[in-house]
Write a protein that binds this DNA or RNA. Structure first.
Length: 263
DNA sequence: AAGAACACCAACCGCGGGTTA
DNA sequence: GTAACCCGCGGTTGGTGTTCT
């Protein structure tokens, strides 16, 4: 319970910003419940976190949205829905994207949707078709602590890939990534087994013989796993380096090209 | 010139999910 | 197993500036 009667609310002062910035620079991000005390701020932890993430954090892109950014926001929104955390991958804060969406783009999207109301309703979306990719925390998984590379739970091939690679067939890095995005875009193959894991069509993988994938792992700076090379520190699928151009091309090919023209 | 309406955005709040004891 | 705690997402509010009438 925040001490709502005691903590300060409302706009932040320059002095508060300086205190918060110094605190985060000294102790790092996280442990927000300790930040008000450490920084000497009479603010609740949520307020401190929000101020840092949306305003003080370095490298925040501010100002007007470019045409490319708007295009990407619209496409990602169509792909992922109201999940500003993913929309914020374009380099804006989640709050910035959310505000812009709520005050600007949503109206345009609503009005454009009215134009197509005469069309038949799409098939109803059930709970089982909702895709909710979320970052995962695996720090309690023993084999991860031991340094075994693995792929994130939220993966097109399902829970089998949570297992250590020694029990899995190898996949090409780019292939895995693009298949995940394609699985998001292809509702025919998506099943959800629980709130957080995405299952794609695994029939082809099932036919692959299980191979040992740790045969040539002596490379400095990383590790060869089958035909994949993992950089040092790269432990999960979400750590794959991503080619923005590939993602952009994929979105371009799958989503409605006329969306922007309607705006 | 002044009040109303609108737009923008910083900030607040509730709640769900993950972690810890 | 579970209760308490913590984090952070997403909806909403409220203040301020701008435009309209």
């Amino acid at each position: 319970m925040e001490r709502s009667l005691r903590v300060k609310k409302g706009a932040w002062t320059e002095e508060e910003d300086i205190l918060l910035r110094k605190c985060v620079e000294k102790y790092g991000e996280g442990r927000w419940h300790q930040v008000p005390l450490r920084a000497g701020l009479n603010r609740c932890r949520k307020s401190c976190r929000m101020r840092w993430l949306n305003y003080l954090k370095p490298n925040i892109k501010r100002g007007g949205f470019s045409v490319d950014e708007l295009d990407l926001i619209i496409r990602l929104h169509k792909l992922l829905g109201n999940r500003q955390v993913y929309l914020s991958t374009i380099g804006r804060t989640a709050n910035d994207v959310k505000n812009y969406w709520n005050t600007n783009l949503r109206k345009k999207m609503d009005s454009s949707n009215k134009d197509v109301k005469s069309k038949p309703e799409p098939k109803s979306i059930t709970k089982a078709t909702i895709i909710k990719p979320r970052p995962r925390n695996f720090k309690n998984i023993s084999w991860l602590r031991e340094g075994t590379p693995f792929i994130n739970v939220c993966h097109p091939f399902g829970d089998d890939l949570c297992k250590p690679y020694s029990t899995m067939a190898p996949f090409d890095n780019n292939e895995v990534e693009s298949m995940w995005w394609e699985s998001l875009l292809d509702d025919k193959e998506i099943n959800i087994t629980n709130n957080n894991s995405c299952l794609g069509n695994v029939s082809e993988i099932d036919q692959e013989p299980i191979k040992s994938v740790f045969g040539d792992s002596n490379s400095p700076g990383g590790e060869n796993v089958g035909n994949m090379f993992y950089e040092q520190g790269q432990r999960c699928w979400s750590d794959f380096s991503s080619d923005d151009a590939d993602l952009w091309n994929l979105i371009n090919t799958e989503l409605d090209q006329q969306l922007l023209e309607q705006l």
